[in-house]
Simulated assay, not measured.
Amino acid sequence: MRIPVTLAAFIFVTLATLLAGATGQNMREARLHQAAAEGDVTTIRQLLAAGAKINARDSQGRTALLVATQENDVATATALIDAGADVNAKDNIKDSPYLYAGARGHLEILKLTLSHGADLKSTNRYGGTALIPASERGHVETVRTLIKAGVEVDHVNNLGWTALLEAIILSDGGERHQKIVQALVDAKANVNLADGEGVSPLQHARSRGYQEIERILVAAGAR
């Protein structure tokens, strides 16, 4: 069937217009991610006003807010969150602004996500809450903040480890991790919850010679 010339022209113009619109939208959102990486809040606001989608994803599945969070750019993250960015939107490897800020100890951004609907039960690619990597990496104030926010202290990740276990197994036993172990104990973490192989936190601490952590655990009833 032959399509009339006028109809064909109409279809061509319509498709061209839609394609141009889609291309323009993609360009705005690519610029949004670039502006987030560069900390260009003025451009971010202009792009959002022009119709850029605030939770659009880049090739890695990241939103502009996650890009800003990875840069630990508080001002840019604040502008995006205030404009309605999703603090729980995950990328291709299951990082979200909330989870990433917690894991990396980006405390100011973490607090922003907590005050804007962070999902305390969300988990990363290892099946862990934000509290677990924060404990492993020695982010004392982050751990305290997450505990206060209500993150489950005895959550077990895909490795069979809790925040307490990671604060021992993957640490150097130094002052920061001693404070974290104490904070977890004070938050009523189960000091006898063993790993997947049945090794308890106390056994891990003793095998590594972490005497101060051992003392904290014994005082809390560990065995």
Score class of each variant (00 low, 15 high):
S122C: 07
L112G: 00
V151P: 03
D86W: 09
L114C: 10
V5S: 07
H155R: 08
T145I: 06
D119T: 04
R45I: 00
E214R: 14
E212C: 06
I168A: 04
I81R: 02
E141L: 00
T162F: 09
A83P: 01
R144A: 01
I81W: 02
L7D: 09
Y100V: 10
Q211C: 11
G198R: 13
F10H: 13
A167T: 07
L7K: 09
F12I: 15
L112M: 04
N26A: 15
S115K: 07
A64W: 04
L80S: 06
A130I: 07
T63L: 10
V185A: 02
E141M: 00
R125W: 08
S96R: 09
T43Y: 05
V218M: 12
A167C: 07
R223L: 11
L47A: 13
M1D: 09
Q70C: 05
L184Q: 05
Y126K: 09
Q34S: 12
I109F: 01
D86E: 09
E166V: 10
A205I: 13
A194Y: 01
A49V: 02
H177W: 04
V74P: 08
S207M: 15
H116Q: 07
A189R: 08
V191H: 08
D172F: 03
D58N: 15
M1C: 11
I11P: 05
K53Y: 05
V5M: 11
N124Q: 08
Y126G: 14
E214M: 12
H116R: 04
T63Y: 01
E108M: 06
R206C: 13
F10T: 12
V74A: 07
A22L: 15
R137K: 14
G209D: 07
A75T: 10
R62A: 13
A85H: 04
V5N: 09
